[in-house]
Design a protein around this nucleic acid. Sequence first.
DNA 1: TTTGATTATTTAAACGTTTAAGCATATATT
DNA 2: AATATATGCTTAAACGTTTAAATAATCAAA
Lengths: 337, 337
Amino acid sequence: MQKRVSLKDIANKVGVSIALVSYVINGQEKEKRVGAEVVKKIREAAEELNYQPNQIARSLRMKSTKTIGLIVADIANPFFGHLARIIENEASNQGYTVIFGSSDEDQFKSESLINTLSNRQVDGFIIVPTEGTIGQIRELAKKKTPFVLVDRYFPEINASHVVLDNYRATYDATVQLINEGYRNISLCAYELDLIHMKERIRGYREAMQYNNLAENLHLVEIRPEHYKEDIGKAFDEIVAVQKESRALIFATNALSVYGLYCIQKKSLKIPKDIAFFGFDGGESFDLFDPPLSFVQQPLEEMGKESFNVLLNLINGSSKITQVMLSPALIVRNTVNT
Amino acid sequence: MQKRVSLKDIANKVGVSIALVSYVINGQEKEKRVGAEVVKKIREAAEELNYQPNQIARSLRMKSTKTIGLIVADIANPFFGHLARIIENEASNQGYTVIFGSSDEDQFKSESLINTLSNRQVDGFIIVPTEGTIGQIRELAKKKTPFVLVDRYFPEINASHVVLDNYRATYDATVQLINEGYRNISLCAYELDLIHMKERIRGYREAMQYNNLAENLHLVEIRPEHYKEDIGKAFDEIVAVQKESRALIFATNALSVYGLYCIQKKSLKIPKDIAFFGFDGGESFDLFDPPLSFVQQPLEEMGKESFNVLLNLINGSSKITQVMLSPALIVRNTVNT
DNA sequence: TTTGATTATTTAAACGTTTAAGCATATATT
DNA sequence: AATATATGCTTAAACGTTTAAATAATCAAA
């Protein structure tokens, strides 16, 4: 790394003090009444030396890094990748950069990430919180660190969040299937103590109950670490027990994709043998023949909104903003079409 | 943001100088001969006040931020998302954090990203370079900024890189299809002035020539901004002209996925009507019936290797390391199976 | 011709670290 | 007893900015 040029270098070259150079570089030559001649010389010297400000020094002095920390479950997961991309764009438009980390749904990794990023003095966090991290989030709130939770949140904590209306997502999907004539509708969800999952389960459950299908309620709870095994078992059971009017709703994208894989393996046809309702888009859903139905999350809104809420907090607002975004049903493989 | 505790706070509490506290915090109490009693007091105070070092201040002083900049084409693209994830892990293991940015294959965004991250004093870069950015890369080299190019590189620049053996990837895929008995083999690639694409095209071309199929050579060049239109046209042409023994190789994942979409739309059956060879894995390839063949990139190696090469450069090595990784063919939908 | 205001510039502290150098004091060596 | 060495701690500069305050120079008003 070659030595970078600093304000001092410009000051020396022009023969003025560092302060003047700083004023000019920051466009404060008017307020600070810098002489026209000097302004010109400083500008030229900066240009000539190709001066680039040292953000680290500036951050130290200003106590603001113009950097946010983004903690997702896994950046390799396209859902979070997309979200990250949208947040990155929004941040960049506002002069912020993003440091990211993947928690892997592990509370210890989450804790270590929060610490690392805090020590790097990020101005705020956007966090997809993981099971068991409620204490960490509480701690952030206690320290008055600006942060926004996305995708999931803790109802016990009064903090800003931007999430999907998960209840409505599965409720609507279930009703859609009921309207299409299905009766044996199962929901495949993670066994997870996080509100978004609980809500998705509740949406399904209530939709079934309100439509007098309580006795057909069939909730398949999948252990995240054994999802392949558990989904496999669930299929065996469904195929053995339900003989007709079968439909399957998946509560996450990963579950949907592996579910599809099983459906293929068992040579079941969608929607003839079993109807399918996935979560989040994905290339496979379009490629299927016929294309598959799924719950679509408003990712763009989710990303933009979460950054903007965070920005407000960073700028000193203490208003807590809780946003619940509406899902959209992309309905395609109905028996009727 | 609550005021964070600094070395000074600890020093005041214990009643010693800041220097002593720094020594103890950094585990230098032996070398710097700090009294046992004082060490204990400082440790206790640090614990009690929950001291967390300010990395920004440390960075300024040490001229090292323990941060790297990662510039990919698009973090939302699962290929880059995975790569980012692997790099993130590797970096984290070595005490580094990652600031990322997506260039969108746009040279101006790339330039602005490089500048922003440089000003944030990243210790080095991992870059997936974009068309037209050779000047920016040259500039980095000139300034002796540590960097590693991944996925693509510029043969004109003597710098470290970690890439796939792209020539072999398409060469092997082509030969595989020839061995399966296909004769009318087309390659669908981007019209792009980047070495990885050129090499993929060359691999296909030479495989055809060496097997006396030069007259069947059919290269479909897709304009990145009009890929849907161009792929559509290509299909019309292929279906119209080639009547039998048809096979299609795609030079990137995105092309593969949209290609699949077209194949579905045209109700072509794989491999009966047309054989398929994709690039990079992807959930859809497994879900297809029968599962699809593709060229697999050693992502794990690519990520780890690129970070380690970068780390060497950061640590002062001036050795240029150029790594070419071998692709693997995942062969599945052959006519023979 | 002093005073006051205006204009242009410098000084210096601060942000939170790290670390070389200096300064006491105690202990060991001759 | 004088000197050398070891021990324990402090001082202060440095990293590259920002910015309030001080200073100096110029000019206008009285």
